[in-house]
Simulated scan of single mutants.
Amino acid sequence: MTAATPRTPLYASPTGLTELQTVLADTSTSHPKVRVAGAGTAIRWGTAPTSAVLILDTRSLQGVLRHSPTDMTVAVRSGTPMSRLQNELAAFGQRVAFDAARVNAGATVGGLIATADAGPAQQAYGTLRDLVIGATVVLSDGTVARSGGHVIKNVAGYDLAKLFMGSLGTLGVVAEVVLRLHPLPHTSATLRLPCAAATAVTLGSRIIAAALEPAALDWCHDHLMVRFEGGEEGVQGRLAAVTRLTGASGEVLRDDEQSPAWQPVHEMALGRPGDTVLRVGGLPGDGAQLLGAATALADVWGLHLETASSVGVGVHILRIRAGAPASRGRFLTALRADTAARGAMVTVRRRDGLPADTDMWGAPPPTVSVMRAIKRQFDPEGRFGADRLAPWL
């Protein structure tokens, strides 16, 4: 006999792995629908979470479990804010080489994994997916599963960290994570070059081809920003090399001046209340065409569109700051059709301003059958993240 669904949701805030296991095991029948909640920095992404009878707050799962400065790894509970972790690691001259905009907004380690978010540093260090080497997750019946460890190597079976990357809380709860670390750079400087988007893609390609190894390479508000990290002499030499290579002069911002240089990039990624923010992922060389097509479509629907781009990795941010909901919805539909024809994909990172009935995910990818099979294996009762990835799952 199926238990009646409680009218008032149960809120749970476990402080450790054992407590998290117990909560999920004890409520498997009485509370069949679970929503995993963290700092809430991605609550506007994609489809709105539906009502759940168990709200599982991970923010009490905090703290470093083990830090090995020599091996350059750290094990941390998933509810730990990434900014707090970075501050603790800085005392050892180390960091997680990750700078998504939501870090400064209080995003947790687990929340950043659940959304597969990334920032400008992905140019040199990859996304968080590339920095996670181990994970402990708890499934719907309280079962604990682990993969990886403190050694940077391949593992047999499921790589849980990568499997849960971008899952938006639909497979289980990430409880603990092991991260690969990098040293803090001795010197960091950003060169700002004024240019249009098409020029930025060309210049970015030349900088990468010249093996100058920028730490970040983003275009925003008609400026290409090139960040270099390392020793003082090396950074100075690469800054000079970019000037010679591009034939353009720009402004160099150092150390404490660097934050204002990258703030517009972070603001674009986050958006503000009322903004619709979209992420487009495609091939790096197609950036100018993708942004040009998006701008033309925005003009058709009378929308005010701002764009930014991580030109070296082919990730672009579109921010709609004004326009009727119906026009924004039609723009999204047209943009999806255009980008799909170019082999690119659109993700809704902030759904403000879109009609309530908008299909937030669009057509399912070719891998949707694999996604559904994994969902059945990890969460056979469909307990986690109801409708979060609907209609895909």
Rank of each mutant, 00 (worst) to 15 (best):
P6N: 07
P6T: 06
A12F: 09
T15S: 15
D26A: 15
S28I: 14
T29L: 14
S30N: 11
A37K: 07
A37Q: 13
T41W: 02
G46D: 07
T47F: 04
T47H: 13
P49Q: 01
T50W: 01
H67M: 12
H67Y: 08
R77V: 00
T80P: 05
P81N: 09
P81S: 10
L85K: 07
A97D: 04
F98R: 03
D99Q: 08
V103Q: 05
A114V: 00
A116I: 05
Q122I: 11
Y125L: 04
T127H: 09
R129G: 04
L131D: 04
I133Q: 02
A135R: 03
D141I: 02
G142R: 09
R146A: 03
S147C: 07
G149Y: 10
G149C: 09
I152T: 14
K153F: 11
K162M: 08
L168K: 06
V174H: 00
V177D: 02
V177F: 02
V178C: 08
P185L: 10
T187K: 12
T187G: 06
A189H: 07
A196C: 12
A196T: 14
A198F: 00
A211D: 15
P214C: 07
A215W: 08
V226G: 06
G230K: 09
V235R: 07
R238Q: 12
R244Y: 12
V252W: 01
R254F: 13
P260D: 11
Q263Y: 07
H266M: 11
E267P: 07
G271Q: 02
R272H: 10
D275R: 01
V280M: 12
G285R: 13
D286M: 11
D286G: 10
G287D: 02
A288D: 13
L291S: 06
L291N: 06
A293H: 12
A294S: 15
A298I: 07
G302V: 04
L303N: 00
E306Y: 11
G312K: 00
R319D: 01
A334R: 09
D338L: 08
T339G: 05
G353S: 04
L354Q: 03
P355D: 03
A356F: 06
D359C: 10
D359L: 10
M360A: 13
G362S: 09
K375Q: 12
F378C: 01
D379E: 05
E381T: 14
R388D: 09
A390I: 03
L393C: 13
L393D: 11
